[in-house]
Amino acid sequence: MSFETLERYRPFIDDWDGFVAALSRPLPICVWTNTLKSTPEQLAQWMAEGGYPIDPVSWYARAFKLPSNASPGNRIEYVAGLYHVQEEASLLPVVLLDPQPHERIFDMCAAPGNKTAQIAVHMQNTGTVLANDRDFRRVRAIGHALERLGLHNTTTTTFDAANFPRESGPFDRILADVPCSCEGTSRKNPEVLDPTRGIGLASGLQKAILKKAVQLCRPGGRIVYSTCTYAPEENEMVVNDALGEAGHNMLRMIPAQIPGFKSAPGLLEWQGQSFDPQMKQAMRVYPHHNDTGGFFVAVLEKGPFT
């Protein structure tokens, strides 16, 4: 497998050989308990009965890792909506969003709905989760996951996230898990490393979506910006742009850290451009640190601050 397109990240990745070695291994499968219908203890028991090693995710008590050849989507417990299958790194944005019962939360780019479902379960089927995507076929896929898990606190819309109507707000928390070059998913989809695909092509759209999130968030509310790519053009540069435009009294970063999960800080400069010093509070996820995919998460808080 060629990792040529990732070479440009070598200067800031701490253990390049470990990084490449992790990318060469298949990705473990991760499942999380639908706590509306079951408990992690029940799920552990099911795994034991199914012949799987019980390997809890240390930082997220409701989740378990399975061997990469497991097929948890064919189990009766899955059909009944007792758990959901979702890659470990992609669980991070919602944990950092920290949804609370009865809040009003917007998932801007929601399809296929895994994070929407995770938000709705964290809210214990109360309040409002608005799940949007611009592709109506993908919006239908969101519906299927939500139905199986028994979630009735969600509304779906089909709309361009960057131009989402202002009157739909305000929201207590917003997840901007934006379309990206997806380099971090190469352990599942090796074609994302094809050099002809291009990196940073979506940065204009990403910036527009994050600015829309800032507009729709209530004062004091939280915004999580995430991608599954390593590219600073789609990560730090996008967040830096939003911080610069909003100003320090309207938008600030808060630490994106999870005890028990190893991550690297956001970059402070890239190719001659330096970023807001707060950027070190962002979270970079490299596959060799926790045997996951790659991810980027920034947590922002909306002002005004005095």
């Binding site: 409002t128 608005l130 949007n132 109506f136 919006v139 519906g143 939500l146 139905e147 028994g150 979630l151 009735h152 606190n153 969600t154 509304t155 779906t156 819309t157 089909t158 709309f159 989402f164 109507p165 009157e167 739909s168």
Partner: peptide, 12 residues
């Protein structure tokens, strides 16, 4: 739910 954009689905 929001009035606009018009929701595709509300609830389950």
């Amino acid at each position: 739910p929001p009035l606009r954009p018009a929701p595709d689905t509300i609830g389950m």
